[in-house]
Design a protein around this nucleic acid. Structure first.
Lengths: 241, 241
DNA sequence: CGGTATCCCCCGCGATACTG
DNA sequence: CAGTATCGCGGGGGATACCG
């Protein structure tokens, strides 16, 4: 006769946990916080979540007053955080900071998801640092990823970045070949890109000026500046950018 | 082939959520933060959680480096938050503040757990405001609670507070008769004790001086000063005590 | 007190397919 | 693009009993 979903407690921590600490929900909130608005955009941030479950969670979040559904142009729908939802932002961010400090040793090989990495990279490219007047195509080859997720193309054109898993057919201006794990380490700020290049884990092929631009255009993970506390490193703690 | 327990993401939010957003875990952390140290003490804070599951969660938290198990005197065990665990405190507190602001309308009748209420009250009594040199017995009768959890006795003696569900047999110095829901409202700071008394939801029987002392001795919920944002009340927002 | 051990139910959620 | 529909299983966790 115990509660199936709830905790049966009036405590605000319990009532909040019933909503926010549900499976997948913190990740959906993270995506909304990072600016994802459309269903399939959200899906790319949680590739292992089934669309049925994402749909269900979004409805639950809407019912809880955290998410607002708005009609976009055409048949599209937009999901936005409500005022209550925006107030969860510092909590999700703090959870991420805590994770960056204390969960490093729990990373398993399963966690190195190339889709998530590329999606993260895509949305963190500062297009203003890349050529504007012409199309730029960057191919990224991730060694160690499973075959279907090994080759990616970033197509930068008119201030937009497109991410493809299939060769779009354009001429490639820059090619980056990287070990998946090393690329994640770089993205997480645990190794500098320069060090990874020196160690032979990353290799750029193409115009060096474009390679330099790309390196500058790539902002790292929002948690890249948070120092892990698990190792015995000097560990100067950083805040969120 | 999806992850059974994990999310398959290197993102620190995901790795943290794998631990912290697990079912019951936020409530166990809340109990540890509030100072519970022993297994059965923790259980009283999460009465609906099975002991097997609490044991399992504590082991998981220990493995995650959040909880440290220490041998107490005799055959007792003590659970303490590690440094990593202490850093979760602001997150759990923020979750509770958010819950106090935004989940009021989600309270169901199932959530009015008299055991939790009495356990909360017990640990928030300021004994220095009650008689010191003699035993004081306060009976609390909760109308609307199920029969087995309707009558409670607080025995204050030598600076210790004992909570009993069975009549300890001592002479009762003060009797408080209250509607369960009203008592929770008071505890949550949503209604003043004076207003509840005036509305006839609370009634003290016994020495008025002792009643006054008891009222002063009872600190409210840590979230009692957080104003709900759901109603259209003026809502001056407060911080945590 | 401080947990284990065991059984078993049930539903959350993963997988797959399909629609407007 | 934005979801629904359906099915089946796995294991999380509730219930209960027991031990050192």
């Amino acid at each position: 006769m115990a509660a199936h979903k709830g905790y049966g407690q009036f405590c605000p921590v319990a009532k909040a946990a019933e909503i926010v600490a549900e499976r997948w929900t913190p990740l959906v909130l993270r995506e909304l916080i990072l600016g994802s608005r459309h269903f399939n955009e959200l899906r790319r941030g949680v590739p292992l979540m089934s669309s049925a479950l994402l749909s269900q969670r979004l409805r639950e979040l809407e019912y809880a007053g955290i998410v607002e559904r708005r009609a976009g142009g055409g048949n599209s729908t937009e999901y936005h955080l409500s005022e209550a939802g925006l107030e969860l932002r510092p909590i999700i961010e703090a959870l991420g900071v805590w994770g960056a400090r204390w969960t490093r040793s729990r990373l398993t090989s399963e966690d190195y998801d190339p889709s998530l990495l590329m999606w993260d990279i895509r949305r963190n490219i500062d297009v203003t640092r890349l050529p504007r007047e012409r199309r730029t195509v960057i191919e990224i080859f991730l060694q160690g990823a499973e075959a279907a997720f090994r080759s990616w193309w970033l197509v930068v054109e008119e201030g937009e970045v497109d991410l493809c898993l299939k060769d779009p057919g354009y001429e490639v201006d820059l090619r980056l070949s990287a070990e998946l794990k090393a690329m994640v380490e770089v993205w997480m700020g645990r190794q500098s890109m320069e060090a990874a290049v020196r160690a032979g884990k990353l290799r750029f092929e193409g115009k060096q000026t474009l390679a330099a631009s790309f390196r500058k255009s790539l902002k790292l993970s929002p948690f890249a500046r948070v120092a892990s506390r698990e190792s015995l490193a000097p560990a100067a703690s950083g805040g969120l950018a």
